[in-house]
Write a protein that binds this DNA or RNA. Structure first.
Length: 329
DNA sequence: AATGCGCTCAACCGCTCCCTA
DNA sequence: TTAGGGAGCGGTTGAGCGCAT
């Protein structure tokens, strides 16, 4: 006998979400924080499957989502991350905190696949930005493989070092938590829904005025983080933070930006202060990428590397976990 | 103006993973 | 140790939209 459905099929509504449902869901999440999705339909009266609620939140309603066209920068990251990780959209999305895995997946399937296909047919190499223009595809692939090899070696080195280190936790959720970006910055919306979203946005702004901290979620996640004096070990992520902690996607939107800034403004010996980032290279291992590890990679470095930035590459290539970075672990 | 076609993306489905009792 | 349940992930679908004919 097969597994029972996650929720009763009878009476469960399907299809597009209405603004009213969105309001209900958003207000519930604001009050209780994301997670425990099973309880959402029961507690809110929504005639939706718990999975549907989670999906709606993570892919559309949660704050920090950027919508609209992907930038060249994002596109390059997706292409190279996909090359490295395969179709691990959640892992890839963790490097693009403002994008959802669904968005990335869609973008890949609708745009990038075609671009790559064109490229493979030999008819778009010069116009395709995903690969460096100055080298052939063969050279490019060799370069990527060399990077992978280097990264593997780095991982081995890293894993041989004591990992009792701390990393900076993401900052607490910004005020914008209370205003879903889907509403704050709707890029593409149907006319009827658009007017509704404006209303919702107004409503949510009012809520934001009343309370600037999402009670449960912040207490859950940031209390865990703050309790360790703003440091957090990769392996001690509070599981109650569920989606956000696992994917690092909700609060990282701006948190990551500050991390980017701090990483990029610092010297190399500060780069890996999030030392557990080293397992990020694990994804380059033979068997199975560990997305959770990935998420904690030194983003600026990896980003540079992914984007073919020479400094980033050099950093990975030349980087010695124990010699040049004594304070790393 | 009507129709067909292709594209986009929100949402669903089913599987896997992980946690807990 | 193991079974059950919840959450997450990746593949797929289909409605809606815009453009071409």
């Amino acid at each position: 006998m097969g597994r029972p459905p996650c929720c009763d099929k009878v009476g469960v509504k399907k299809g597009p979400w209405t603004p009213e449902e969105d309001i209900v869901l958003v207000s519930y999440v604001q009050e209780h924080g994301p997670g425990n999705w099973r309880a959402v339909p029961a507690n809110t009266g929504l005639k939706r499957c718990s999975k549907s609620c989670r999906l709606r939140w993570t892919n559309y309603l949660r704050p920090g989502i950027k919508r609209g066209t992907f930038t060249d920068h994002e596109e390059k990251m997706i292409i190279q991350l996909q090359a490295l990780l395969g179709n691990k959209w959640a892992a890839i999305a963790s490097y693009l905190p403002e994008r959802t895995d669904n968005d990335i997946k869609n973008y890949w399937n609708t745009h990038l696949k075609k671009k790559l296909k064109k490229l493979q047919n030999g008819s778009g190499i010069s116009s395709f930005d995903g690969f460096p223009h100055s080298i052939s595809r063969g050279q490019w692939e060799r370069r990527v493989q060399a990077d992978i090899k280097t990264a593997k070696q780095a991982l081995q080195d890293a894993l041989s070092v004591d990992k009792n280190s701390t990393i900076h936790s993401p900052p607490p959720p910004p005020d914008q938590f209370l205003i879903p970006s889907a509403y704050r910055n709707p890029c593409r919306e149907s006319s009827t829904y658009a007017s509704s979203t404006e209303n919702i946005a107004r409503l949510l702004k009012e809520w934001a005025g009343k309370s600037t901290t999402p009670k449960s979620e912040e207490s859950k996640c940031s209390s865990t983080q703050n309790s360790s004096n703003n440091t957090m070990s990769t392996t001690t992520l509070d599981s109650t933070c569920t989606d956000q902690s696992r994917s690092g996607r909700v609060y990282v939107s701006e948190g990551f930006e500050s991390l980017f800034e701090s990483f990029e403004s610092s010297n190399s010996d500060d780069h890996l202060s999030r030392s557990s980032a080293s397992p990020s290279i694990d994804i380059l291992g033979e068997s199975k990428p560990e997305s959770d590890d990935l998420e904690l990679a030194p983003l600026s470095v990896l980003e540079n590397w992914l984007l073919g930035d020479q400094s980033g590459k050099d950093y990975l290539t030349d980087f010695s976990f124990d010699d040049q970075n004594p304070n790393l672990f």
